[in-house]
Design a protein around this nucleic acid. Structure first.
Lengths: 149, 149
DNA sequence: TTTTAATTGTTGTATATACAACTGTTGTGC
DNA sequence: GCACAACAGTTGTATATACAACAATTAAAA
């Protein structure tokens, strides 16, 4: 369905249309992701932070590292990490060399939860872009990269 | 910059990569849009609702119509509209024929505000996709449409 | 006609987010 | 060494959002 039909707005400037199209599609995908995460009690940002921590492969991360890599730059990573710690999915220790810094790591419980989620999440992702050919996927990624400059 | 570099994650399944790429790019664009709206005291969802109301061309809209057309399906359109009414940008009257329904319209003040915002917003949109050719833009819109099915 | 179901919004509650102010820690120039 | 700036997180406050429960009105069924 064309974006014009969805938002019932004819004759938009192409730039506006494209921006709305990207945001709208992303919202759909976010909703679907949230749906997958719901049974596991995680929000999408929480899940993304967990994945970042897993990507550290044992090496702990400080808050600014997490923030740099976050898909959605949240203003309050502290409280997001708090939630993960409350759930026992991450741990935080104050850095010995530089006591301004904190070191955040994923716990075994966190890793276990992520590995449970991986399959259904990738399945959803597959399904979400199942209408695209391999070439389409490459083009889309290239175009998005081009948008970001 | 490739999405892998940004989130520092090598070798993702292509589907996951693409989904993250879309959401990440959309977040950038949302942030930029919010930046444009800030001086006008509007959030992005508020702005979108105002645009929907303007698109009605005088005809009032009820809540479910607004919700259908919203870029981001918010669960609480009531309170979003409340904010617009507080600011004098929209008005709400209870529908005479069906008193469950409400009729929401944009006010003159709302229209005036939107017309102020149009130029800087479209300018931002232009800039955001300035690296895309006309063909690129068409491909991107087609591919996103294909994703949505 | 009275009861039941469906529609349309609203409100309550918990959580999330943006933004700015604040605290504690480290580094720099004098 | 001391004042001051820069850094790294944390906390406060207002707003936004998701989700579910609720109320009011209308339509349908018995």
């Amino acid at each position: 369905m064309k974006i014009e039909e969805i938002i019932q707005s004819t004759s938009m400037p192409p730039a506006r249309k494209t921006v709305i199209n990207i945001i709208f599609t992303a919202n759909l995908l976010s909703e679907q992701s949230a749906e997958v995460l719901k049974p596991f009690g995680l929000s999408l940002p929480q899940f993304n932070v967990l994945r970042i921590l897993r990507g550290q492969k044992g090496k702990p991360a400080n808050l600014s590292t997490i923030q740099d890599r976050m898909v959605n730059k949240m203003s309050n990573t502290t409280r997001l990490v708090d939630k993960l710690i409350e759930k026992g999915l991450a741990s935080r220790i104050i850095c010995a060399e530089n006591r301004r810094k904190v070191e955040i790591s994923i716990t075994q419980k966190g890793l276990a939860l992520l590995s449970e989620i991986d399959a259904p999440m990738d399945e959803m992702n597959q399904k979400a872009i199942s209408r695209l050919s391999e070439d389409d996927i490459n083009s889309l990624n290239d175009l998005l990269e081009k948008v970001r400059g």
